[in-house]
Amino acid sequence: MQKQSNVSYKVYATLLDAWQDYLNTPQIYDKYWDFSNEPPYTLEEFWVKQHASLIDKVNRVPFTSEAASKGTAFNAVIDTLITGQLDEKVRMSRVLGENGERLAIQAELDGFTFQFPYELCREFALYYKGAIPQVRVSAILHTMYGDVEVYGFIDELMPLSVHDIKTTASYSASKFKHHSQHLVYPYCLIQNGSDIQTFEYNVAEIDKYGRWQTYTETYVFDPDRDIPILRERCEGLIEFLLQNSQHITDRRIFGGENPDGYVGVPVDISKLINK
């Protein structure tokens, strides 16, 4: 078991993903608007929006996203099939055909209603037979800015592998290569005495017609290669936090606590212009 230390920062895995998205702002802009004659933003304006979005993520500003809610709902359906325990936040029901056959599982969350094909749900649930869902892991990472607690929730933990469930409307090869979950979760497990190095992103691609495909991205954690990458990402994010400390209102990322009743408030974009 890794010894605890004086933690300077607490960073969760998907926040590091948001940091990578911020760094990739020009590439994201080119992907969506490079060939547009009338893009909704200039690249400079998009940088400001990305900057504000990352600060809001750090401050845990509440938001509703259909894509995020869909992923959460699908995870809840799979966990329910594995454990037999309903998720209180997600209302689920069966969608039956004329002859009583199971066509889909309907899930309602955050005002959205999703229908996931039953065979897709069954395939995922059978794949994870014996898994432990929603396992919180954390460990200390030493950086030039002090000790950082990196942490997150593993969707499905198997005896020899870690799994993260993804939903998407369109999948391309190595889509999650630059995400940080396949760095953070194995690192945490190894630091706490569980030598599990194999990580899978299990992807459900579901189009608007309900047609689906499944894909798997597999990564094997290599400490010599991956710990320096994880450290570099954490240090880059910390530098961003220090440069924008006047906008950071959620103190948990600095290892602190918030006052009772704290709710993150979106940053004023005008304060970021010409910063």
Rank of each mutant, 00 (worst) to 15 (best):
T249Q: 14
C121L: 15
L272Y: 02
G264V: 11
N75E: 14
G111C: 14
P133C: 13
V184C: 04
K175F: 05
A204D: 12
C121M: 12
L86W: 00
P133N: 13
Y151S: 12
D21Q: 15
Y12I: 05
Y9D: 06
E205Y: 13
D34M: 02
P186R: 06
Q191I: 01
I227C: 13
E217R: 01
P26L: 10
L96I: 07
D17C: 10
D147L: 03
G130L: 07
R91S: 10
P117G: 12
P159Y: 15
L103S: 01
Y127V: 02
P228D: 12
P117W: 09
F199L: 04
I78D: 04
E149A: 09
N99E: 09
S36T: 00
T167R: 02
S170R: 04
L183D: 04
E44T: 03
R252I: 11
E119D: 13
G210I: 12
Q2H: 00
H163L: 07
I196A: 04
C234D: 03
I82T: 07
D87T: 12
Y151C: 11
N258E: 09
R102S: 11
F35P: 00
E232S: 12
G100S: 06
D226P: 10
L157C: 09
S245G: 00
A173R: 03
E108V: 13
Q246C: 04
S8Q: 11
S53R: 10
D268C: 09
E239T: 07
G71Q: 00
E123A: 15
D195M: 08
Y22E: 08
Y29C: 05
I253E: 02
Q115S: 00
S194C: 07
G146H: 08
Y128S: 04
R136M: 12
E200I: 05
L230Q: 02
L160T: 09
G261C: 13
A125M: 07
T72F: 00
G84A: 03
D30P: 01
F63P: 02
E156Y: 15
Y209A: 11
D224V: 14
Y185G: 04
E44K: 06
A104Q: 03
Y128C: 08
A52Q: 10
E200K: 10
S8D: 11
F116W: 08
S270N: 15
R136Y: 08
Y209F: 09
P26G: 06
Q50A: 13
I248F: 15
D224N: 07
G130S: 10
L109K: 01
G210C: 06
Q115D: 03
Q115F: 00
V11E: 14
Y118R: 04
D268P: 05
I140E: 09
E108I: 11
V220A: 04
S161N: 01
F63C: 01
H182N: 05
H179L: 14
R233G: 09
L157V: 12
V162H: 02
M144H: 06
N274E: 15
Q197A: 03
P133A: 14
P133K: 10
E88Q: 12
E44W: 03
D224K: 06
N244L: 03
P39M: 09
Q27P: 03
A68W: 03
